[in-house]
Design a protein around this nucleic acid. Structure first.
Lengths: 352, 352
DNA sequence: CTAATTTGCACAATCGATGGTGCAATCACT
DNA sequence: AGTGATTGCACCATCGATTGTGCAAATTAG
């Protein structure tokens, strides 16, 4: 009604309807049948609620019921296709359950992660999906203490169910695809296949292991000095490329890049060097980005199955007592020049 | 202490310390000096709080004080570089103010937008940044009624302060850069410069206007039949390209693409056609993406200044009574093969 | 040594919604 | 009509924190 006014509460409606606040509450939260409220009473109150634009104060409800209707997703970063696509899928899924999605990022900083999760807990979130946490087990402890259901995604913990990408298999697929891509040209030599990026987290380790094993199997050479974990920053990765180029006068013909963020390091390098420098390289990137897929050299990519991972995670969340085990989800090898669809394709787009 | 236990409340600490709950509350929320609590009492309580891992129940606090410490950002979508980068910057800024960032997307659906904002209001969020809302004014009404400070970003409203990209200027820069890019080659003819993407929102209209004006000025031809607003979906855009190609047997040499999402439509088209189809095209895209910048044909991009927009928006939010006017932020023209830094570069990355 | 301050804290109402319990009125049935 | 079951709803404690108010005790002033 009046716009500057305070929001209507059940007490306002209680006065207006002549019913008690508890009756109003019951009607408006749907529990009125259980409470044997007359249908006509319910309709009266619902009418008033609508007319006065009543919306429940969810903080009050959450305080009383100690459940908030909030479902959290903790991400390392937003501006990355892998994680933002996860956020997109997550939101749709949570909304379809009638809950409210909360997506937060914590910058791969363990302290920030803890603080963020504590804040979420203070808002009595009902469930938490932990994606890419640097220390899932310490977050597990927090959730456990607060009695909050939680599932790890992307990076596994030992104490809670974890849904992760099969990084080892993915890395094997990617590595062998890179090697095979040279079959028509001059075969790739062991010293020409390098891995850049990643750090000492579970995903990177598995990818490195997959790279290593496959390289040894297929090219028969030890891979250790061809592995350059540069962390997750584009700049460090760029520096690694510069250093390599400085030393060797060229790039390796075969590149395994740990993630699209690291790939940006290669882009920065590219910006400093002419086209010819990249004439015969083949890149495999453990992440999918449609634009990267169409670069002037062959780019093989791994698309992690975020939909599949989230689906599994939601499934586990629904179970009463999910085992704290690791569930592997197979990623997919994407050949060069592929523009795939994503969660955006599901949203409607009507012209005004 | 005990892990399965309920969380400690001020009442628990009240018993443990021998002080009243109000004293505990004052100590823990920092207002204890105002309330003339003895320093030693404060220390005692702080010690207990730490030992028992007390964290305030923010729902209770929010209920009482009707302010939650939450600051919202409403986005159209997550998985888009422009908006996810905005989310990233937003989070950092909000955190630095000691508040809790809430990022939600509403899929460019007016109904969803309203519902989402109502939910946020029900959680008593303190401030709302509305980015890319299809109908900012209707959201304004909601916020107004709830007394929530709000600023529009990216798409302007008439009732609240709006910080938007200077789409007209940006489109002019982009259009003229596309045309000039042909100076060394055979000059571009009017019928060879097309605009694809966008729909009937403020941003698209301004971009189209900038495209139109510049094209007329520089190529001296009416531009109307070279404008194909295809909405924001990659698929519709792809179809537009297919239709054009079907009709003309080639693509236009000069392409103005409304956004990176529309650009993905071109990628899908590319996936269906050989390299040669794109041998001599020049693309201008109203969005910046580092991978797109290195595609096999020249890609000129507009980088919208998200940091600048958010900075201005936060500045306005801090003002007591900001005028409901439009603040234009200049975007930047990015030449081909540029890998720029973004918010990710600010996050630390230490190897474990 | 008494009066006026100041210090330090407890009390209790309150925010808005929930849900267990109890009670009157109505209905069914012998 | 009397007994028991059912219907329809009101009452009230409660969730955990905030905050205005009041009042002893300690301190200072005169």
């Amino acid at each position: 009604m009046r716009q500057g006014k305070k929001k209507a509460t059940i007490y306002d409606l209680s006065v207006l309807s002549g019913c008690s606040a508890s009756t109003v509450s019951a009607v408006l939260n749907g529990s009125w049948r259980k409470r044997r409220i007359k249908e006509s009473t319910a309709q009266l109150i619902q009418g008033l609620a609508e007319r006065h634009q009543y919306t429940a104060n969810l903080q009050a409800r959450g305080l009383r019921s100690s459940r908030s209707g909030l479902v959290g997703l903790l991400l390392p970063v937003h501006d990355n296709r892998y994680f933002s696509s996860m956020a997109q899928t997550f939101e749709a899924e949570v909304r379809s359950h009638g809950k409210c999605p909360i997506v937060v990022s914590a910058c791969r900083d363990p302290e920030e992660e803890r603080a963020t999760v504590e804040t979420l807990i203070s808002y009595s979130i009902d469930e938490l999906f932990i994606a890419g946490a640097t220390d899932p087990d310490s977050i597990h402890t927090l959730c456990e203490a607060a009695g909050i259901r939680h599932i790890n995604i992307d990076l596994p913990g030992t104490r809670a169910p974890s849904v992760i990408s099969d990084n080892y298999e993915g890395a094997r697929m990617l590595t062998s695809a890179i090697i095979e891509h040279f079959h028509s040209a001059e075969a790739l030599k062991p010293k020409e296949l390098f891995l850049f990026g990643g750090r000492n987290d579970h995903a990177s380790r598995e990818r490195i292991r997959g790279f290593r094993d496959t390289k040894i199997e297929m090219l028969g050479a030890d891979a250790d000095d061809c592995i350059q974990p540069t962390g997750y920053s584009p700049n460090m990765t760029q520096k690694a490329f510069e250093a390599f180029y400085e030393r060797e006068g060229k790039l390796p013909r075969g590149l395994f890049i740990n993630s699209s963020i690291n790939f940006e390091g290669l882009l920065r390098f590219m910006g400093q060097h002419p086209h010819e420098t990249f004439a015969d390289i083949v890149v495999g990137c453990y992440d999918y980005d449609p634009f990267a897929s169409f670069l002037p050299f062959p780019v093989l990519m791994i698309r992690q199955n975020t939909e599949g991972m989230l689906a599994k995670a939601f499934e586990l969340m629904a179970e009463t007592r999910p085992a704290p085990q690791i569930y592997l989800i197979q990623p997919e090898l994407i050949m060069p020049r592929m523009a795939l669809t994503g969660p955006l394709d599901d949203i409607k787009d009507i012209d005004g």
